[in-house]
Computed example of a mutant assay.
Amino acid sequence: MHLLLDLDNTLVDRERAFASWAAGLVAEAGGGPEDLAWLLRADADGLTPRRELATRIAERLLPRAAPGDLEQRLLMEHVEHVTCSPAVLAHLRRLQGQGVRLTVLSNGTGRQQRAKLERTGLAALLDAVVISEEVGAAKPDPAIFAAALAQAPSDPDTWMIGDHPEADIRGGAAAGLRTGWVSRGRPWPHAAPPTLQAPTLAALLDLLPAGAHRPGTVH
């Protein structure tokens, strides 16, 4: 078995890490709760381009800051708040011991995403890392899936596991993979469901040994 694993809000809790960092930035700027709520909305779970968000932060909170400097802060400072749950690490060690190949497949910059892997101890558990900036294509582009599949071209039992319905799940399905959706409590938004779904990665990985070849759901 070969697992392609998304990083942010799948392997690591990017949502909580960014919220923690954002609270410090708002306090630094002398802002209040409404500013923090605005920043979390503006971040859009990391999907807003960093330069665009940096410009908006400068306009609202830090008018003396250079957007380029803020962009670098957005990219790197929340990394110090990133965590991976002990349950996920234990699952990955178990899978690694069973001979399952583990590849991170992530959109983002190499410097940022690799720093998260090192900080959380995930780097030592992985067979390969495929990051959009480094391969020149981002999920759901078929090219990035092809780059990840090249890490184990002879394994017919390959899964894409992630939290994003389009980038991870529909992208993975289009590449011919079984899919596992980390729902984070959200309802599945499309007609065709993923192969497996569960609210957390740990719960989803629990399904794999018994349910690797059939659809299933944990509520």
Results as ranks from 00 to 15, higher is better:
107 N>K: 05
136 G>D: 11
161 I>L: 14
184 R>F: 11
92 L>W: 09
62 L>C: 08
25 L>S: 04
38 W>Y: 09
177 L>G: 02
65 A>M: 12
116 K>V: 15
186 R>W: 08
90 A>G: 14
69 D>A: 13
82 V>I: 11
80 E>Y: 11
206 D>P: 00
183 S>A: 04
8 D>V: 00
99 G>S: 09
142 P>M: 15
26 V>F: 11
125 L>M: 14
147 A>G: 09
77 E>Q: 12
109 T>V: 10
150 A>W: 14
104 V>T: 09
168 D>A: 01
153 P>W: 13
202 A>I: 04
103 T>P: 15
129 V>I: 15
150 A>N: 12
134 E>F: 14
36 L>G: 15
84 C>G: 09
118 E>G: 06
130 V>A: 14
26 V>W: 12
154 S>K: 15
185 G>V: 05
151 Q>M: 12
119 R>F: 15
85 S>D: 10
111 R>W: 10
51 R>P: 13
36 L>K: 04
207 L>G: 05
212 A>H: 15
137 A>M: 05
102 L>R: 07
177 L>T: 01
167 A>N: 15
28 E>N: 02
149 L>Y: 05
115 A>P: 12
13 D>A: 02
89 L>I: 07
210 A>M: 01
205 L>G: 03
5 L>Q: 01
173 A>R: 15
193 P>Q: 05
109 T>N: 09
61 L>R: 07
192 A>R: 10
190 H>E: 03
8 D>M: 01
